[in-house]
């Protein structure tokens, strides 16, 4: 989803400095939420910004997701401050994508999805997605509370 397309004939210098003249505003709502326009109501300025920044933004996001995925292979996960940051970012992106697929548009939708807590009631794709979303929400919230506490003790 976030992996940029490999293209033949791409300018190697442009690729090296992260420039990408072929980017476009994403059509998939979830991808657009991950890689949003930087200027409201100005497609041209946003596109110019995408050409300069989108490739490295994708790499940042993929890096955090990969780091979290690698941790999942371990028997026991102990997070460093940097690892915790990657996990919180990865969980947030996962939640943003699930929220788009679940059509969460406002706080009311979010509350409705939040009601789904019982695995025995997961009968279709939507209710299963809602359970995964709620689990990821709980995990991220618990992690971020611990991160906030460690920020506090460092002050």
């Amino acid at each position: 989803m976030l992996q940029p397309e490999e293209r033949a004939g791409q300018d190697p210098l442009a690729a090296l400095i992260g420039l990408d003249m072929d980017v476009a505003e994403p059509t998939d709502r979830a991808v657009k939420r991950l890689l949003p326009n930087v200027v409201k109501d100005d497609g041209a300025a946003s596109l110019e910004f995408r050409q300069l920044t989108e490739r490295s933004l994708r790499e940042t996001k993929i890096g955090a997701l990969r780091a979290a995925a690698l941790d999942l292979d371990k028997d026991e996960i102990v997070l460093t401050p940097e690892g915790a940051k990657h996990w919180s970012m990865a969980l947030n992106d996962v939640r943003l994508v699930l929220a788009e697929r679940l059509d969460i548009r406002d706080e009311e939708d979010a509350e409705h999805v939040h009601l789904m807590q019982d695995w025995s009631q997961a009968e279709d794709v939507e209710s299963y997605l809602a359970l995964v979303y709620n689990f990821a929400t709980w995990l991220q919230e618990s992690l971020v509370q611990a991160m906030l506490q460690s920020l506090e003790t460092r002050r």
């Binding site: 919180s88 947030n92 943003l96 929220a99 969460i104 939708d109 919230e141 971020v144 509370q145 906030l148």
Partner: peptide
Amino acid sequence: DPVNLMSY
């Protein structure tokens, strides 16, 4: 947005 946690 309705997704991002206040704490985050």
